[in-house]
Computed example of a mutant assay.
Amino acid sequence: MHDKGLSTNIGWQDKDAYGKSLSTRQRQRMQRLRTWNERFRTRDSKDRNLKQALGEIDRMASALGLPDNVRETASVIYRRALSENLLPGRSIEGVATAALYAAARQAGNPRSLDEFTAVSRVDKMELTRTYRYVIRELKLEIQPADPGSYVPRFVSRLDLSEETQRLARDLLDGAKQAGITSGKSPVGLAASAVYAAALLSNEKVTQSQVSAVADISEVTIRNRYKELLNASEGLTA
């Protein structure tokens, strides 16, 4: 129930408008009114909080091209955070962004931290800190991001072929078998695999173009794609 901005604060003094002390019955009645007033104010505050958060989730999901199921999961995560009182000391925007980031990871439709930071109203450090806090407190099960889950989006945005997409996945599988993916950025691995696969399939794409799509440095691509090709050669040798 919203008060349309016409909220009422019931004072703590047990006196009437003329400063006279209230009777016992009147004091009891005022106490009940204070209790109900506080309940409505608290509920109204949570309603406004939730409305703002869901608006942020929708805005960011649209900007990132995330599907409805990810938005719905993010909304559930945010509601849980709100009901379990995880908001004090943290911004609505920060928890909303963390909820959406977690939901995207759970759905196997991840976006990088940099991509989230670009559309969020909080910086990367706050997002990272809040995300870790939320998944820990809510005991969310988040699997490590799979580099392969980024490949289709990068291939699509670069207008590359299905053959390049298949080769990129093969390169990532080979790298995993060779044990060289541990501790490396999934986004960097995916982008480098796409670049290497494009070279193998004779498609024209530059490191700069891949860098822009994946939002990582050309240096990362340059270093990683050679490692991926070497790992692939090692497995077939």
Rank of each mutant, 00 (worst) to 15 (best):
S112L: 02
L138H: 04
K204V: 04
A197C: 10
D173P: 00
L33M: 13
R166P: 00
S217M: 04
R129S: 12
G108P: 07
L167Q: 13
E38P: 01
Q26T: 04
V205T: 12
G188C: 05
R43S: 10
V205F: 04
D44E: 15
E227H: 08
F116T: 07
A198P: 06
N109I: 11
Q31A: 13
S192K: 05
L33S: 10
E126H: 10
R27P: 05
S161H: 10
L86M: 12
A103K: 04
D159R: 13
L113M: 14
S182W: 03
D159W: 07
Q106P: 00
R25S: 13
Q26A: 15
Q207M: 15
R48M: 10
A118L: 09
G89V: 07
D215N: 15
V194E: 03
L100K: 02
L172M: 00
E137A: 08
L189A: 02
S120E: 06
A193E: 01
V210R: 07
K46H: 10
L64S: 09
D3V: 10
D47A: 12
I180Y: 05
L54D: 05
D44H: 11
R105D: 01
K139T: 06
Y133N: 04
T164H: 06
K204R: 13
R27M: 14
M125F: 10
G94M: 02
S120T: 05
V122L: 04
L100H: 02
S112F: 03
D114N: 14
R34K: 14
N223T: 09
N202L: 03
K51Q: 14
G55A: 07
N202Y: 11
V210Q: 09
R90T: 00
G65V: 05
L66M: 10
Y101R: 08
L87M: 12
V76F: 06
R222I: 04
L66R: 07
I216M: 02
R222T: 13
Y133P: 02
D47W: 12
E72Q: 13
S112M: 03
E203T: 04
R79P: 00
T236L: 14
Q13N: 12
A190I: 03
A103W: 02
A197G: 04
A74M: 04
A237Y: 13
L22M: 11
T35E: 14
E56P: 00
Y225R: 12
Y18I: 00
S7W: 09
N69L: 09
T97I: 03
S185I: 01
R41V: 07
N37K: 06
T42A: 11
K51N: 13
Q177F: 01
P88C: 06
G108S: 07
Y18T: 09
V119W: 11
S45F: 10
A118Q: 12
Q106S: 09
E203K: 01
E137Y: 01
Y78V: 04
L199Q: 15
V151S: 02
D3A: 13
N85A: 08
